[in-house]
Every structure is written in C-alpha cells, then in structure tokens.
Design a protein around this nucleic acid. Structure first.
Length: 410
RNA sequence: CGGGGAUUAGCGCAGUUGGCUAGCGCGCGCCGUUUGGGACGGUGAGGUCCCGGGUUCGAGUCCCGGAUCCCCGACCA
C-alpha cells in the first residue's frame, strides 16, 4: 500500500492524561481511534493487525476441530432467565435495553446461553457429539471503569469457543487439546515465552479453570510463577493446599503482574441442564451435554504485545501480526527505483507499506520507527542500486539487491 | 461506586485582581528554498472557551447545577 493513500496520519503529541503505553503508541501511530472511554475503533493499520491476530487464532482453533460461526449481539432475555443470569446481582456488567414492542433484550457480554440454544436444534444423539464451535464476536461489558487503553474496554471482539461433549471423559480429552492450541497461539503471536499456563478458580465441575497470563507491568492480575514447571497460580488459588496439589513450593514461586490474554473453563452440565440441551445415549438414556468454554481477546492480545514489544521510538511488531512486513521508504527525489522495488516485492507476494510521500527524510524515518513494521527498506543516495534492509527489532542493517531481499524473506 | 485531577482551534497548551478584537506551539493551505533522523523563511485559514442557568455595565475568568475524560482504589460472571 502506498502511504500517500493511507488516510491515517501519525501524531507527535497526545493528551497528557493518556498514560497507558499501548493507547499512546496506537493512537499516535493512527492504529486506533478513541470513540469514548473504553470504546475504540480500529483504523486500517490496526484492523490489519487485528485480522492477523484473529487469523492465527482461527487456524489453531480449526486444528482442534473448531467450526467457525457467528452468533448475535442482541440476546433473548428468556434464556438468561432460564440460567438465572438475567440479574445485576449475578452479572453486573450488562448493557440491557428494550425493543419497541417492550421485549427485553441484552447486548451480548458472553454467549453460553446463545450457543446452547443453537445446539438444541442440532444435538440429539451421542452420534452428534462432540461438537466444537467458535466465533469472533463483539462483546459488550459495562465496566465501571475502563482503563489501560485497549486492554480493558467496554466493547471488544472476543474469540469464544464452546465445546459440547458426551461426558466428562470426552470433555477432558478435548480440554487438553484446546490447552495445546492456546499454547500454540501465543507462541505464534510472539509472546509465548512470557505467557504462562495459569491455574485459577474453577466451578462446580472442576476444581480449576485455566488462564493464559502474559507477564506485564500493566497487568491487573497477580500470578505466582514456577519457572521450572512453566506454570503459574493465580492469586485467587494461591493456597498451601493448591501448591501441594500442583507440586510447587512456595519459596520458588515468583510473584508477577500479568495480563489475562486467554482462559479456558470447564462448564460441565450447568447450562445444558438449565436450558434443556440433552442427547440420547446408546443405551437410550437422556443426558445433559457436557460443555466447556474457551476465550481469547484479540484486542487485549494486541494491546499486550504493544506493551511488551516497543522501544522509545515506537512499536516493534512481531512478524506474525505486523500490518505490513516491509516498510519501504524512498528518500530519493525521484521514485523510479523505489517504484520498481515496490512492484517486485508486491509481485513476490509480500505485504509492503511504501512511503512514497515527499516528506523530509527525518520525518519519514521517525514515522517508520513509530509504525513499527519488522523490516525497513530504505532507498536513498547511499544505497546505489541496492536497498538498505534494517531489522526493526535489532537495528541490524544490510545492503541487498532486490533479488537477494526476496530470497532472504522467502 | 468512593477519592483526586482535567475540559480553551484537528492535536498539545497559556490565558494575571472579571475588561475591550482570546493567544502560543504542532498540524493544515499557498509561495519559495530544502531532502539520511521529526528542515527553513514568508503568508493564510481555522474558536459553541464542555453544556445549562445565575451574578455583573462587562464572564474563558466568579457562583450553582450537569456532562465528559484521565488517574488511584473497589469491582471484574
């Protein structure tokens, strides 16, 4: 994409009261737009990042048999009454409203009720199980206080996956696969080394739920990490009993602030019983379906990545989710050579942001640092018929011909 | 939901004991000179001083009410 066509512009200054690093950098670089407190729009560059994050997640969910669908944001209050959750005492983050005819509806803050309702029409027999379905959907949560930029917002996209199993054994087998899929996701997103599989409080069908916690100063959670085992305990289960059960010792655990970027949860038959989602088994008995839920917030992941991967000049995107792989910056007066390099890279199938503007060299280079593409390509008086290739993360520079460049990145 | 801070041009800010035509920087338009780390000169456009009342000859400034934003805390199925 030619930068002269990109409508978003970078900014040098930001409101002094916007303190979170992710919001500062993403706003300055034009990745997002703040509509209201805790409500952010994703602009072209930001939406490209979001889509790349979602695509990584999508691929891993598909590997474990997830089928993508798209549920609704407006939700039937009747189903929530059936599960006993249509109440501010139970769920205090609701946005609720009424339709013109007086019918109460909820804006989705989660989709257990909605997906169970769908599955009632499609799950009848043990032969129909297991089923795994997921979506990327907007969630609305009426947080008392939004904070930390896009890390904790009132409207956000969530990947939520639900599993439907015949019994606990079948569920447990899938749960382990889902766990591995999550590990793969965070590994591919470039934060695997600082993201811990974390034990957290469970429900009536399992002692624990599990969270994926990314270590970061801005995190709202406190976790206790066992580096050797590569696991962590959420503060809420940080007890002698749990430590003994997991075989970890108190004096080897390290306390850290962390961001909850994902969580997986055994729901059991709670929702199936309340909503009458059941199947007929081989022996003719009718049983409730055993459910699990698995969430990741792509926006929160994106925010966490910016918090972790930036320097004093700007964002440093990992290859997997950068909006463009290359940022081609032309410093020559004419654009003949740069146009040709741009065409070659495009033909080779690379995502290239091409700074074809007539701004000053300093402005273009500073802006490239802020936007944070992983590889910067400069064409100027010093580069002759070659291209200066600089790795954003390390600052390492080399001169390559276009052919060398393409083969290096193939 | 408790406490603190803020709201003046697209953005960042100044604006004195109430005073006359509300300023500065960035950005933006035009002209010219520049081009490897956010260039320079000239010139120009751009305002619901958050909103609603009130006091006053006169309110960005004082008083009352409200809204929104940010931070700390509580909360986070």
């Amino acid at each position: 994409m030619k930068q002269s066509h990109l409508f978003t512009k970078v900014r040098k200054e930001l409101p002094a009261d916007e303190v979170s690093i992710n919001a500062q950098l993403l706003l300055r670089a034009g990745y997002i737009h703040k509509e209201m407190a805790g409500v952010y729009a994703y602009l072209p560059l930001g939406w490209r990042v979001m889509n790349k994050v979602m695509q990584v997640i999508r691929e891993e969910m598909n590997v474990v048999g997830g089928q993508e669908l798209f549920l609704t944001s407006l939700q039937d209050s009747k189903k929530w009454k059936d599960t006993g959750r249509w109440s501010d005492e139970v769920i205090d983050v609701w946005f609720r409203t009424t339709m013109a005819n007086g019918t109460e509806v909820g804006l989705a803050n989660t989709h257990e009720e909605a997906i169970a309702q769908v599955m009632i029409n499609h799950i009848h027999s043990y032969k129909d199980l297991p089923v795994v379905a997921y979506q990327f959907q907007t969630k609305f949560r009426n947080e008392l206080r939004a904070k930390s930029g896009i890390m904790r917002s009132r409207e956000f996209i969530m990947k939520d996956m639900y599993s439907f199993s015949r019994n606990k054994e079948e569920h447990d087998a899938f749960y382990e696969k889902a766990q591995q899929a999550y590990i793969n996701v965070f590994e591919r997103l470039g934060i695997g080394n600082v993201t811990y599989f974390t034990f957290a409080s469970g429900g009536s069908f399992s002692q624990f739920s599990h969270e994926f916690q990314t270590v970061s100063e801005v995190g709202e959670d406190t976790i206790y990490i066992d580096e050797e085992k590569g696991i962590a305990l959420n503060k809420e289960v940080y007890t002698d009993e749990v430590m003994e059960m997991l075989g970890v010792k108190k004096d080897t655990l390290v306390e850290k602030a962390a961001v909850e970027v994902g969580n997986i949860f055994t729901l059991g038959t709670k929702y199936a019983e309340a909503l009458n989602l059941s199947y007929t088994d081989e022996d003719g008995s009718v049983n409730p379906v055993f459910m699990g839920s698995y969430g990741i917030g792509p926006g929160r992941v994106m925010g966490a990545i910016v918090e972790l991967l930036h320097d004093d000049k700007g964002i440093v995107w990992p290859d997997a989710i950068a909006p463009f792989r290359f940022h081609l910056v032309n410093l020559n007066k004419d654009s003949v050579q740069a146009d040709s390099v741009y065409d070659s890279l495009q033909r080779a199938g690379f995502d290239v942001l091409y700074d074809d503007r007539s701004a000053s060299a300093g402005a273009k280079l500073a802006e490239a640092d802020l936007l944070g593409m992983p590889y910067r390509l400069v064409i100027g008086s010093r580069t002759g018929d070659k291209v200066e290739h600089t790795v954003r993360k390390t600052g390492k520079s080399d001169l390559y011909s276009v052919d060398e460049l393409i083969s290096q990145h193939a």
